[in-house]
């Protein structure tokens, strides 16, 4: 499996790379946001991952062709927010934002502890997206597209605060029909 990680100047991208390789035994390439989009469309990898990063989705224009390409895309944190805005959703400041904290959420019928690092959140979820998981306060924690192979996690499976980060990568691979 070939995986391309598009890095939005984040400081957790290498953690994500290691988790993807450990879980999927994939060949992996990490490309900077600026030139990664073009490369994604040329290389047509089996899976594209849009990383977390500083700032808001509007700081990272140009992801449209990737999200419309039909290729499977997993968005993490900012990556999920980019996905949501592309389909007409909104991102706003999260009252009492959360960084470096683990929290248990219901994910597909089971309680799972996940790491949260986000100042912003999906204040309006795009109509094309469906919320898979939300925390106790109703903040969307995972979304998927209703018809396309697009999946987003607000939390960080690659953090050491997420005890079973590999589960969420395996879930993504199953969702995309890659395993």
């Amino acid at each position: 499996m070939n995986v391309l990680v598009l890095d939005n100047n984040d400081s957790f991208t290498r953690n994500l790379e290691h988790l993807l390789v450990e879980t999927l035994a994939a060949r992996i390439e990490v490309a900077a946001f600026a030139d990664g989009v073009r490369r994604a469309l040329c290389a047509a990898p089996d899976l594209i991952v849009i990383s977390a990063g500083p700032g808001r989705p509007s700081d990272y224009p140009g992801y449209g062709p990737v999200l419309d390409s039909g290729l499977p895309v997993l968005g993490v944190c900012l990556g999920m927010q980019i996905m949501n805005e592309h389909f007409g959703g909104r991102t706003d400041r999260l009252p009492g934002c959360v960084h470096g904290r683990a929290e248990a959420i219901d994910f597909l019928g089971r309680r799972r502890v996940v790491a949260r690092y986000h100042s912003l959140y999906l204040s309006r979820v795009a109509e094309d997206l469906e919320v898979l998981a939300a925390n106790h306060a109703g903040v969307p924690m995972a979304v998927r597209h209703r018809t396309r192979r697009l999946l987003g996690y607000q939390f960080h499976p690659e953090s050491f605060l997420t005890p079973d980060g590999g589960y969420f990568i395996e879930h993504a691979a199953r969702f995309f029909g890659l395993s």
Binding site: F12, N15, G100
Partner: peptide, 27 residues
């Protein structure tokens, strides 16, 4: 909780910072 979060986020950052030169699965 504040000091806990302060350390945790730097631990994730340092994991990232050594990962580029460390073997997969070793961090």
């Amino acid at each position: 909780a504040k000091e806990d979060a302060e350390l945790s986020m730097i631990v994730d950052l340092v994991r990232n910072d050594i990962s580029n030169n460390c073997e997969y699965g070793s961090v």
